[in-house]
Lab assay of single mutants.
Amino acid sequence: MAAAAAAGAGPEMVRGQVFDVGPRYTNLSYIGEGAYGMVCSAYDNVNKVRVAIKKISPFEHQTYCQRTLREIKILLRFRHENIIGINDIIRAPTIEQMKDVYIVQDLMETDLYKLLKTQHLSNDHICYFLYQILRGLKYIHSANVLHRDLKPSNLLLNTTCDLKICDFGLARVADPDHDHTGFLTEYVATRWYRAPEIMLNSKGYTKSIDIWSVGCILAEMLSNRPIFPGKHYLDQLNHILGILGSPSQEDLNCIINLKARNYLLSLPHKNKVPWNRLFPNADSKALDLLDKMLTFNPHKRIEVEQALAHPYLEQYYDPSDEPIAEAPFKFDMELDDLPKEKLKELIFEETARFQPGYRS
């Protein structure tokens, strides 16, 4: 834990890192770190609560700039109880001085990944967590956004079992017609939660990839272990087919990539493993919904509104309290091709509203 900075004593240090967030945020305490930044909790002297502050230093890398800009653009436009918001952003007053960006968010005690390492969940908890994931996802999908990296560590939890989806750095506007060349190379989302079509096709992607990830998360809540822990690309596919069985001819016809289709045709026939054999203690309604989410063919996979209306979630289902976005989200430009200098300018502009004396 960093010592509390005395008023006016300059930035606090946390594990050798400068955290320049005073005077409003003090009493910093280390939480963890990701690929390009550290997260601390801090005391907000204005709202009198502890908050989470993520320090991001992305400006050396085009990919990190892209992810940072995506996350900020999306989260500043989203407003939903099951999606983490941005409360404040701290950065230098000029673009030349801006080396880091500090993002202030609600402090959540833990995440689903940490929880599943230590606790076996009751059916009631599984049901409530799944409902909140789908409630947040309904809003995301209504904005025409794909999260693309749903996994237990991106689901934040607090002691009252509130759940918030975080990390929109890989999110995209849904565009089933656009052929994202190089899709697989830039697709760094965790393999275990990846839909089979991501490994088999490169053309376009749809909201059904997020539903697949939610199915993987439900299976993990039922058993405290990942359902498809593939060691590499082909191993991942083999794990999936080992449980779902061989795809039907109709399902194979959806695979545009001939090499991928021929690979699947070359494999020995596998039978589907019954879900109640894998999860003998699970609620039968939970397994019915799991089956509809972990469907090989993305066109037959359940959609988020149908999933919310499934009998497993009937005690929570309330369409009048499951809000959607006001308007579909649009990125003005494809960020993939922009140089990091341009992305830095866009991050600077996007964060201006939090600067003292800002006038829109």
Rank of each mutant, 00 (worst) to 15 (best):
A143F: 08
A52Q: 04
R24T: 01
G8R: 08
E322S: 02
A171E: 07
I133M: 06
V101H: 09
V14M: 11
M108I: 15
D177V: 14
R50H: 07
K48I: 11
N257F: 09
L134F: 10
G16I: 00
I324T: 00
R91M: 08
E12G: 12
L237E: 09
Y358E: 13
I243V: 06
S284G: 06
V39E: 15
Y139H: 05
L289P: 00
L289A: 06
L265Q: 14
L112H: 06
K48D: 12
E314Q: 01
K207V: 11
C127P: 07
F329Q: 08
S202W: 12
Q119I: 05
Y193R: 13
M98E: 06
L338M: 15
E60I: 01
L130S: 08
R77V: 00
S248P: 09
V46I: 12
I243A: 03
I211R: 13
E33D: 14
D318E: 14
K203N: 14
A35T: 15
T110K: 11
P152E: 13
G136D: 01
I84H: 04
N271V: 06
G242I: 02
V273G: 00
L69E: 05
K164M: 10
C127R: 11
A307T: 10
L155P: 05
E60K: 14
C254V: 04
D291Y: 15
N45Y: 14
A92V: 08
L184S: 13
I126N: 10
S142R: 05
N82D: 10
A286Y: 00
I256C: 13
R353H: 07
S122D: 04
L112R: 01
L137R: 06
N82R: 13
A9T: 07
D44H: 06
P328I: 04
S142P: 07
G245T: 00
P152G: 03
P356L: 06
D177T: 04
P274I: 02
G230L: 00
Q315Y: 07
M293C: 02
F59L: 15
C65K: 01
H141R: 09
E109A: 04
P229N: 02
S142N: 01
Y43E: 03
Y358G: 08
R91Y: 01
V104K: 09
A282N: 00
G245F: 04
Q119D: 03
Y64L: 13
Q62E: 08
N281K: 13
I84K: 03
Y102M: 08
T94H: 08
G34M: 02
E81V: 13
T110N: 13
I165V: 12
N154S: 13
Q66K: 15
N45L: 09
L335V: 05
G85V: 14
R359V: 09
Q236N: 05
H80E: 02
H232P: 08
A171G: 06
I255H: 06
G8S: 11
K99W: 00
A189N: 09
V21W: 07
N27W: 04
V51N: 01
L155W: 00
F19C: 13
T295S: 15
